[in-house]
Each structure stands twice: as C-alpha cells, then as structure tokens.
Design a protein around this nucleic acid. Structure first.
Length: 596
RNA sequence: GGCCCGGUAGCUCAAUGGAUAGAGCAACAGCCUUCUAAGCUGUAGGUUCUUGGUUCGAUCCCAAGCCGGGUCACCA
C-alpha cells in the first residue's frame, strides 16, 4: 500500500478521534515534503481548521502527535505554519525496496483473465510518402501508451489503419505513369516509400504548373484547380480503382507494395509493431454500406447530385459530407467501416485513437456519426490527441522542404551516437556488430526520450541540435546511469561479492533514503501515466530517479564501502534502481545497454 | 468570423489549488592515480502574457483582453 493512502486514512481517523467529525480520506491533501523541510509527507491542515476551531499550528501539532503515537509508519512530525510534515519510518521504505527486489515487474499491474481490452490505433500512415518527424511522435506515443496500458493491467491490441487508397495514392500513381519510365526501388536504389513520395511531389509540381498555365489562359483559380489535366486524370483513376479496373489495381498493388516494404523497415528501426493491421481498401466499402444504410433509415440525407451528408447542426457542428456526388468515399467514411470491423473482430472495452490534435473536429464528428448509426461505443471512443511537432523556425512545410524524414533523422542520430561513443572509447572488447547495436540503442534512446518527455498534449519544438545532445535530461544520460550500475554489478560478481536477495540495514544516509523514497513511488507513477495517458509522467520520474542515483553514486562508494553490510545494502539499492530504470524505459519503448 | 488548444528563466521543458515556481541546455566557477566525467557540485538567470474575480492560499479554477497555433474541404 502506498504511503499517501495510508496517511489519508489515518488522518481521517485522527480527525474523528480528536474532533469527533468524520471526513473522507480523499478529502485529506497529502504531498511529498519539499526538500528544504524536515519530513517525508506533508499534510495540509488548512482544510481542517473549521473542524478543529483552532489555529493551524495547534491543529497540526495535535494531528501530528496523534499520528506519531498511533501510526507505526509515522516516526515523527513537525509543523510549519499550516503544514504538518511527517517523517516516515525507515523500515517502511526498506519494505518497499524489498518489494521491488522481489517482483520482476515491480510497479506493473499483472494482467488478469477478466482484464478489459483496450485497442490502440496509431501510426496510420498514408501510402503516398515516407514517414516524417510528425509520424515519429505518433508512433512513439502509440507504442508507449500501449506499454503503459499493459502495465496497468489491460489487455492491449495495437492496431494500424493504413490509408492505402484515395486521391493521395492516385496522385503518386498518375505521376509515376507519366514520368516513371518503369522505375522501381531496385532500379533506383531507394526505399520504396521514398520513391513513391518523390512521385507525389512530382505530381504536385506538375499540377501547379498546369494551374498556372490555365490561369494564364484566363481561367479563374478555382476553375483551374478543377480542370487541370492531372487532377482530372487522378479523379478518373480513383473511379477506375473503385470500379476494380485491373490495370489500375495492379499498379496500385505494386506501388503500395514498395511503400509497405519501406514502412516495415522504418517501423523495425523505431522498434514499434502492431497486433492487427487494417487497410482502408478493405474497410471503406463497409463504411459506404453503413452510410447508405443511414440514408435509408433517414439518419443521413442524399442530395439531388447524389452526394450524402450528415447534418450535425443540432449537435453544434456543421454539415459533413460522407459520400461524394460521384459516389466515392471520403476520409471519414472508411473510419466508420473500420470501426465496425474492429468491433466485430475484438471485444473492445476501450478504443483509443492516437491522432494529432488537428483532427479533434474529425473525431467529434466520427463519434456522433457512429452514435447515430446506433453503435453504443460511438460516444466512448477516446481521441488521444497529441500536439504537433514544430521546428525551431516553425512548422514543417513540404513546400519549403523543411520536412524532417524519419529514416534520415534516425540515421543521423546513429552517426552522432557512433561518433560520441568512439571518442569516449568505452566499448573495447565488443565486436563491430555489438558496437553498432549499442549506437542504435543510444541513438533511439535519445530520440525517443526527447519526444516522450514532453506532455503529449502540447505542441513541441524539435530542435535537431538539442535532440542529439547526450548530456543532461536526455535518454543517453539515463542509459548511461543504467550501464554504470550494470558495471558495478559485473564487478561485484567478478570479485565474488553477492548481491543479497533482500535488503537489511538500520541506518540510512540522506541520499540512500531519497533513493528509497523515489523507488517507492514507481507503482503510483505507472498508474498515473495510465490515467493521464502520458508517457511523459514516466520519463520525468525516471529522470528524477537517475539524478538522485548519480548524486548518491558520486558521494558514496558502493564496492569500496568497508562496512560489508552497508556495501551489500547499496548493491541491492543500485540493482533495484537499475531495474526501475529498465522497467520505466520499457514503458517508453527505450532499451538500456549493459555498457556504453 | 465561430469553435478548440496553448502562453512559465535567453532556449527546451517540469510543477494532484499549497511553503522561497523547479530541471536541462547555453554562460560562468570548481571536481577524474578511487565502482564508467555521456557524471557530480556551485554561481547567475522569473512581474508564471495582462487585468479583474473565486479563497486561508492561484502558474493551476472563472471572466475579459492581448499574442501564437489548430480547425471549420465533394483533402486526408
């Protein structure tokens, strides 16, 4: 049981015993004592003044006296103004430490047979261009959130809806037909997703020049955009695609195949994966059928040009198109089909969509549409809406060529990790392959931590220079601490010193005590990360732990401690800190190296 | 314009309504014959955008304003 809950309960009991009033434990405000004061847990006495009808000092003292006398965990107290600072008995923290020692997955809630199932959709790329920095945030958040939910005892199904059809991919196809001359990833020596992305860019260039030409011929901009041959061709291709035209379908399969191969590589590099992948090409017709059912049932309206609309004005939103006048589907149509299919495939208790906050409106609409169509889970979908990633000079803009490519970014970070590591030269004895493995772990640790430590809801700035910094509040700093701990444990093993299976000591120095306090917090942190849907909570916690450990490491020797009882205790502490780092980082999808 | 989100040190970010608002980077000053210096210690750096309100207490809640971003497509 965590100390906060114990104190809340006991304070409620004390209020009752002292002043004859019963309050709920949840009404008691407890927090960690600030380091400049003596004590471990602080109780706010202000809220109880109306009950005690005494001054804050007196009330605090009376409560403190009672708690010290009646609660075994409370070893002492002091009162400063309206703050009652309680000192917690060392044994409590040592017990928590031993809990952490015993449990392999300390801090995690084990999955039970009756656990609820949460499906997490993330990544969800379009198949017309390679992944970029924005996708990286999505992928890292999605994967980490899945790990966090698992650690909170949920069954988790990670899913990916691939937007493999629609105008965007038709654009790449049109451009490839026009300019490709049969080029393939093999002939070009490029990843397939990058190759297809190049044709998407080429399409855009061609389209723009056509528009300019038409405008020069006297058309309005709007007209030009409608009539440009490229876009006309694209629309025709989409229709052919929906009509199952063999030639179009073949090209589509080929080009998407290139892209998938490229994506798989990127996913593998990032260390993310999925339990179930859906393809829009399989789900959009289900969505369309659902929309048409909606028309039949009078939920949606079909206009004279045969486009289909949902009127959400009553719900405070706009009218929303669901099917174009030519009968083709729009983005949201497939989301309806995908949702239906998923609920058919899995007994979903919670559905989480990891999608950027620019789509808040989209998910409000989706939720309402599903609800109107009669799905009880429509209202309950959870849009995990994260903020955009910006560069120091603003948003990434493909037009200005400022889009940061995912593969390039990772490769660059590995290069830096390699350079730093070689300069420090601490990996003697490792094979080249082992070294490369470490560089990869460190590079990804830097990237992932840099992104995940920020509150997901907030827009974040990605500064390439800072992201490859390996000092301070960074992933490699934490990994480094882990590696140091493993080094100590190896050395202990080499010299025949065994790490005890349980910690025993009577006295704790300040830094040992601080470490134990932080270790005892981990289970709460995991829980908090789950309820807040925030990997950042874990990242910040691990950083605090590691900072404290390094300070301890600096001030107190472990293996050279002459008192063997103290040495053994510190070994247990160090080992446990290592375990918490590893478990915490696993929630972020970050690996830890044995050496670095 | 309607709706949504944000504004904290020079920069990037923290801070369940609590005490003197904290870290890292950058700057400056120290610490390696001792378990990995990718480390540790210290100095400096703030009207928490503004003005009101709520209360014992507000960076946090409420209102208005200012600034920045998002969104409101027969795009995805």
């Amino acid at each position: 049981m965590n100390i906060e809950l114990i104190i809340k309960e006991k304070v409620a009991g004390a209020i009752n015993a002292l002043y004859g009033q019963s309050i709920e434990p949840s009404q008691v405000q407890v927090q960690l004592t600030r380091s400049e004061f003596e004590g471990d847990q602080t109780v706010m006495v202000f809220p109880f003044l109306k009950i005690s009808k005494k001054s804050p000092e007196v009330t605090g003292a009376e409560l403190g006296e009672y708690l010290a006398a009646n609660v075994s965990e409370v070893s002492g107290y002091n009162v400063v103004k309206g703050f009652l600072n309680l000192s917690i008995d060392n044994q409590f923290y040592i017990d928590r430490l031993n809990e952490a020692v015993r449990e392999e997955k300390y801090g995690f809630v084990p999955e039970t047979a009756s656990a609820e199932l949460v499906m997490i959709e993330y990544s969800s790329p379009n198949t017309n261009k390679p992944l970029h920095l924005g996708h990286i945030r999505n992928n890292l958040l999605g994967f980490s959130l899945a790990e966090v939910m698992k650690a909170n005892g949920y069954k988790v199904v990670k899913t990916n809806i691939v937007n493999d059809r629609g105008v965007h991919i038709c654009k790449s196809m049109v451009a490839w037909q026009k300019f490709g001359k049969g080029e393939t990833p093999e002939t070009h020596g490029k990843k397939g997703d990058h190759l297809v992305g190049e044709y998407y860019v080429k399409f855009d260039q061609q389209y723009k020049s056509e528009i300019a030409e038409l405008i020069a011929q006297g058309r309005s901009e709007e007209q030009a955009k409608e009539e440009a041959p490229s876009i006309v061709e694209t629309r025709e291709m989409l229709l052919k695609w929906e009509a199952n035209d063999p030639e179009v379908r073949n090209l589509w399969k080929t080009m998407n195949g290139w892209v998938y191969k490229g994506f798989d590589e990127t996913y593998k590099t990032l260390g993310v994966d999925f339990d179930k992948i859906y393809y829009e090409s399989d789900t959009y017709t289900i969505g369309r059928d659902e929309v048409l059912r909606g028309v039949k049932e009078g939920i949606f309206q079909q206009e004279s040009d045969s486009s289909v609309w949902a009127n959400l004005e009553k719900e405070g939103l706009d009218k929303k198109i669901l099917l174009r006048s030519d009968g083709t589907s729009v983005y949201i149509t497939q989301d309806i089909g995908t949702a239906q299919l998923r609920y058919r495939d899995y007994p979903i208790d919670h559905m989480i969509y990891v999608v950027g906050n620019e789509q808040i409106y989209h998910f409000q609409v989706l939720s309402l549409l599903l609800d109107k169509l009669g799905y009880k889970w429509g209202k309950d979908l959870y849009h995990f809406s994260y903020g955009m990633v910006e560069l120091p000079n603003g948003r990434m803009k493909s037009r200005e060529g400022t889009v940061v490519d995912a593969d390039d970014l990772v490769a660059g970070m590995v290069d830096v990790a390699r350079a730093v590591s070689m300069e420090l030269g601490k990996l003697e004895g490792y094979s080249e392959a082992e070294k490369e493995h470490i560089y990869h772990i460190v590079a990804l640790g830097a990237l992932k931590y840099f992104i995940l430590k920020v509150d997901p809801k907030k827009t974040m700035t990605f500064n390439p220079e800072e992201s490859i910094d390996f000092n301070g509040n960074t992933g490699p700093f934490i990994q480094y601490t882990y590696a140091r701990i493993q080094s100590i444990l190896r050395k202990a093993n080499d010299t025949g010193v065994e790490v005890p299976s349980q910690a025993a000591t009577e006295s704790l120095n300040d830094k040992e005590r601080n470490l134990l306090k932080i270790i005892s917090l981990f289970p709460e942190v995991v829980k908090e990360a789950g309820t807040a849907h925030s990997p950042a909570v874990v990242a910040n916690y691990v950083y605090d732990l590691v900072k404290e450990f390094n300070s301890f490491y600096h001030d107190h020797s472990i293996l050279n401690e002459p008192d063997s009882a103290k040495r053994d205790f510190r070994l247990v502490v160090a080992q446990t800190v290592g375990k918490v780092i590893k478990n915490g980082f696993s929630l972020l999808g970050i690996e830890v190296p044995e050496r670095m």
